[in-house]
Amino acid sequence: MMAAASTLKNMVLCLTLVCLICAAVVGVAYAVTKEPIDAAAQAKTTASIARVLPESDATPQEGSVRVGGTDYKYYKVDGAGYAIISTTSGFGGLLSLMVGVAEDGTVHNTTVLSHSETPGLGAKCTTDGNFISQFQGFNPAEKTLAVKKDGGDLDAITASTITSRAYALAVSNAVDVFHQLKQGGQDDE
């Protein structure tokens, strides 16, 4: 078989046909995978919420609120508290956390959603039990959410003060968001 001649008609026809078929293939793939993709994203959120807030049967309600010029996304779980997504700048890039604040204003637990910290140093914020456990049950009314170097009550991760500061700031921002939500009395949904 010889390749078709490169006449204008052939070229246009060929490109159009290829594009149509490819568009159809991608369209079908999109339709087929849409549900599993949403389900996977949902599962990740649900798992994170379950980690940062006390157990509850209530369905999380999504919402967003503007505090200090930044939009925060949060999930409200009736009877348990708020799971707030809070992002700050770490050492290598953005550090995004989900912070669970219980109804009484104490931090229940935190989890890292995404980060780009240095492996083996700042990246320990996802694994260093001594660092992470400090936030569990942290009461911002009694203690200060900052590392000891900055006059707070938190031990920083060894050799990763910048990451620790970013982490503390993210949690402290989330607590501010919580107070704003409480003050407002109701959510802007």
Binding site: G69, T70, T87, T88, S89, L94
Partner: peptide, 10 residues
Amino acid sequence: KDFSFGGAAP
């Protein structure tokens, strides 16, 4: 991607 420079919000 989100960016953040000089402590500004992402």
